Simulated scan of single mutants.
Amino acid sequence: MNEAPQQIGDKDAQALLLQVRAWALELGFSQIGVAGIDLASAEPGLAAWLAAGFHGAMHYMEAHGLKRARPAELVPGTLRVLTVRMDYRPRGSVEDWQAVEWRGLGDPQRAQLSIYARGRDYHKVLRARLQQLATRLEQAIGPFGYRVFTDSAPVLEVELAARSGIGWRGKHTLTLHREHGSMFFLGEIYLDLPLPLSEPISAHCGQCTACIEACPTGAIVAPYRVDARRCISYLTIEHDGAIPIELRPLMGNRIYGCDDCQLICPWNKFAGKSTLPDFDEREPLRAPGLLALWAWSETEFLRFTEGSAIRRIGHARWRRNLAVAMGNALRAGSDQGISMALREALPSANELLAEHIEWALQQAQPERQAEHAHPG
C-alpha cells in the first residue's frame, strides 16, 4: 500500500465508482459493492467456529486467526474493500438445471462434480480479471495501494459481500441474492481509496431450512454454521487422508464438491448464467461415468484437468474419491464392471487407496451373501 492514500472528493468518488462498475461489467463481473473495514462484530463468530474445530485440517484458517476479520492488519493501509460477484452457471445449462443435477445424483453409475468445477479454475479467471479491473483504475487515477484476493487468503468473503450489498449470508453460510441465487464466485480488492460504501441488503431466508435438511452428511450443524469436517466439499477437496467410514455411504456419487444445499435453495431458481465461456462444462466432465474417470491414468488426469480447479487435489485423492462413489454404487446394486475395475486396481494401489478400494468392494457383500443364501 502507498504511505499516502489518494485524496478523492465525495462527488469524484461517486463518479469513480460508477466507472468502476461499468468496467467490472465489461470484464464479466455481475455486480460490485464496497465494504468498510470494521468487521469487529464478526470476530466472536469466527473465534467460536475455530474453537469448535469446525475448520478441520484447514490449519491456515487458525494460523491467521482474527486477521481474517481485520483487513487493515492483513493489508496495512486498506480503507475499503471492493467486492465482486461473478455468476458461474454454465452458458449452455438448461432452465431446469436443478432437476438435471438431482437426476445425476440419483444415477449410481455417474460421477457427480460440483457445477463450478466443470470449467476453468475460478481462481485463475477471477484473479486475472480483478487485476485487470485494478489496472484500469490505476490508469485512470494514477498509482494507489491495492491487493487482489480470490479465495486465496484469510479474507472473510461472505461477511464482506454481505456488508457491501452483494447479498446476505444464507443458512448454508453461502452468499444469497434474491434475483441471482448463490451460484456465483466472490472476489475482493483491498484498496486505500475512500470509495463510497454500498448499502447492505436484508436477509430473506425466513423460516426456510431446506439447505439444512438437504445436506447429505448433516454438515450444516445449525443455521449459519457449517462443520467442515462433515462437509463433502471439504472431504473430497481439502481433506487428504482417509475419509471417515461413517460418512462414506452418505457421499453417494459426489466425487468433487457438493451442490445439494444450493440445488434445494428456492432462491436458486433465479440463478443467472455466466457471460464467460470459461465456466462452460468441459466435455470429459459433462455427466461422466465412474468407470470412465476411474480408467484415467495420472497422465490423462493431468491432461483432462489442465486449468481446472480439480487438478489441485491430485490423481491419488481423485482415485480415493472415486473409490468411495464406486462402493456406494455397489451398495445400490449397480455393478456393471465396477467390482472388476476395483479388483484390478487393488494390487498396485498405495495404502490409502487400497483401504478405500477394499471398503468399496465390501459394500457389495451383503447382497452377494443374500444371493448365496437364496439361490435362484
Rank of each mutant, 00 (worst) to 15 (best):
S274D: 02
L342Q: 11
F149G: 02
L79V: 06
A228V: 03
C231I: 01
A364V: 12
E3A: 14
I237L: 10
H356C: 09
D96W: 04
D278Y: 09
Y146S: 08
A332D: 14
S198Q: 05
T305E: 07
C231Y: 00
H374F: 13
P223T: 03
R110A: 14
H372W: 14
D192M: 02
A128Q: 10
Q14E: 15
G333K: 00
V81A: 01
L191R: 08
G257R: 06
P277S: 10
D151N: 07
A349C: 11
A140L: 14
G56V: 12
W49H: 03
V125T: 01
A140E: 14
L197F: 03
Q369D: 15
D259N: 12
G181T: 01
Y224S: 08
I141L: 13
V226L: 13
E213G: 12
G187R: 05
E138N: 13
H55L: 12
R169W: 11
M61I: 07
T209N: 12
V20M: 10
A325P: 08
Y256F: 15
P244S: 03
D38Q: 05
S114M: 07
A222H: 13
W23Q: 02
N268C: 04
D12I: 00
E73D: 11
R229I: 14
T175K: 00
Q336R: 15
I201N: 06
H239I: 11
V125Q: 00
F185Q: 06
S202L: 13
M58W: 12
V221R: 00
L291W: 05
I166D: 00
L330I: 09
R80C: 07
V34H: 06
L291Q: 10
T135A: 15
G33H: 04
E371G: 10
Y60P: 09
P200C: 12
E281G: 12
Q19H: 07
H172Q: 12
V100A: 08
A47D: 11
S198F: 04
A271M: 05
Q262N: 10
G142Q: 09
D151E: 09
Y116R: 00
A140S: 15
L290Y: 08
S297K: 09
W294L: 05
A51N: 01
E355H: 04
S348T: 15
E62D: 12
A219P: 10
A52W: 04
A24T: 08
P366K: 08
W294D: 06
I201R: 07
E246Q: 14
L25A: 12
P71C: 09
G307P: 10
P284W: 05
L82Q: 02
Y116H: 02
R91K: 13
A117L: 06
N268G: 03
P249H: 05
R80W: 08
G314W: 11
L160P: 04
D12G: 15
A52R: 15
W102F: 15
P90I: 06
M251R: 02
S30L: 03
L156E: 03
R136Y: 09
R120D: 04
